[in-house]
Design a protein around this nucleic acid. Sequence first.
DNA 1: CTTGTTCTCTGTAACGATAAAGAACATCAT
DNA 2: ATGATGTTCTTTATCGTTACAGAGAACAAG
Lengths: 353, 353
Amino acid sequence: MARVTQQDIAKVMGVSVMTVSNAFNRPDQLSPDLRTRVLERAAKMGYTGPDAVARQLRSGRTNTFAVAFEEKLSYAFSDPFSVAWLAAFSEVMEESRASIMLLSVPAGDHEALAAVQDAAVDGIAGLCGNQPAMIRARERGMPTVYCTLATRADADGKGDYVVIDDHAAALEMAGLLRRLGHRRVFLLVETLYPGQPRMAEYRPEEFRDLVDAHAGSLFSDDLRLSGLVGGLQGLDVTVVPVGTNSRAAGHAAGTLVLDRKDRPTAVVAVSDVMALGFMDALRQRDLVPGVDVSVAGFDGLPEAAEAGLTTIRQPVRDKGRLAAELLLDPERKDRRIILPHELIVRRSTRPVA
Amino acid sequence: MARVTQQDIAKVMGVSVMTVSNAFNRPDQLSPDLRTRVLERAAKMGYTGPDAVARQLRSGRTNTFAVAFEEKLSYAFSDPFSVAWLAAFSEVMEESRASIMLLSVPAGDHEALAAVQDAAVDGIAGLCGNQPAMIRARERGMPTVYCTLATRADADGKGDYVVIDDHAAALEMAGLLRRLGHRRVFLLVETLYPGQPRMAEYRPEEFRDLVDAHAGSLFSDDLRLSGLVGGLQGLDVTVVPVGTNSRAAGHAAGTLVLDRKDRPTAVVAVSDVMALGFMDALRQRDLVPGVDVSVAGFDGLPEAAEAGLTTIRQPVRDKGRLAAELLLDPERKDRRIILPHELIVRRSTRPVA
DNA sequence: CTTGTTCTCTGTAACGATAAAGAACATCAT
DNA sequence: ATGATGTTCTTTATCGTTACAGAGAACAAG
């Protein structure tokens, strides 16, 4: 009941293994008659076609590409940005008839890192470049592409990328708030470092030390945050790590911040998802975004447009598409791509009263 | 600059290849001292650890499982049912440290079928059992699990499954409509067969012939539809294939049906997504679900609860979870699981005026 | 001084396939 | 008849790893 191989067929038919192999892969290398007989015999013997793994070993290619996530995969399917990116990425892969493998390598999960080692893929893409999976993949000498620069330094490191200039974008956002006259601003980020207490509040002087103290850890929003902080210098700025990049976390930040006397006049989240959650909290209190508190996000999701949320639009689909193209075509020249972004001002940001 | 292998290291160090292999996989098989030296030397030579593909070939296992979709992958990420299923499936896989491969094998795309042949996986799961990818996988002798029975006959075929009794569920739904006194009912399905003209209207006598004429084609909602038709016998029933399983298609069906004189008193879609789309069309016309037209769906999505939509709840997450467990544990006994469903009556279905 | 056991390490043979080159024979033009 | 050209099939050599069986030394127990 063992598996039938080309060798078995060859032996039974009294032909060489190569002939059997050619019958399946290179019809021009043997007579149509023999080919038919081989295929028939193979079918009769219960041979189900060339083994994928063996073929991959011999050819040195798997035609499969991995996507690494820092979170559980259920997050990858629920975050709008992630889904849009994945959709664009997969469309290109589908067209090229390449397969996609999903890897989940949560920060700090050392065992999960082995998945990168054991992945039979030709390359790997990830949303963030400094995540452990990406680093490991590069150590393995595997082609990598990532779509967010976490720090300036990343730009000089290894690996290809498709990103936007998050720092410049953040500066523009800060400029907008300045022009609108805001003086007391809260900035919502996911986490400053792994194990970060949620909903703590930091002054700009403090948070930088914290991040540096955990250097090498993952802080993917560093460019956005430091851009905002830099651009808002001189104003009353508070940084709040809300724990996760989710609507719920943004909402929780709202409950934390909105019920006190000294409300901020503006709140910027480093993602639209968080900003939308914060707006949920406003709505609950019958406060109006832009009127009572100005709110802004990053990413440019369709949901942000519906909600009238000021944001930085980034070309998500292009990021996904180009990431796939870079992986598929190792010969391609420009392998470090900086895409344009756009500050989109909507009704959620207004001049301070 | 060729790739470094265990053999290279062995040669350079004057030890056997097995020793190198053992240094990486079975530390107890060699002295700690030698092991350290091997690892150091390996690192120095730029060896990046055992090759995944070679290891898979040797061991006969890939620890990877495929999920096959009949649509483009972007659909898999956008349909709520699909996403929920995938999330549950992936959670189990993550816990077991198995990887997931996504395959897209659209109906009729013969080239894409090759992906199933070339997938280096230990098993494959799919939402529907009679899709080409599943059939091909079973021909390859690969373990399969699917989560929807398309026809009664599927139940006797090969492969494991985790399903609900869609036919019985549909009968219950039909019974509800009967009790509520509905006499003119429209049934929305995705498509009856590939290439099906959209928004055609069929009588129950007709559609069965159509489906049979395209026997062997994919019609995954057959059990639901035939249950509904059977349960509504004697009433004025019309079957409408709306083209795709999407909110937009349900909405389009609404524009088709709602602006005529002889409106149906009730509409049942074989999925919540379509039903929700239909309700969008109602709302646009200031018609009230349940009052002007009764509406019902299938699946039991959270969105359905919010919208007050009567539906058949099915345990999506259990389907995903169990599918993964069946793939992971080939020894497990019960491999054909029928989960309970539940008719949930909400305000979208009321007695006919 | 056996005999047995443990600890390290080695050699060989797969796993299932394909690339590359070659052999045998037929065909064809000169 | 000669060489050139094809067609069809075979031989040999990997791809990078691990399973398995054993060999040699050291050490304890009888």
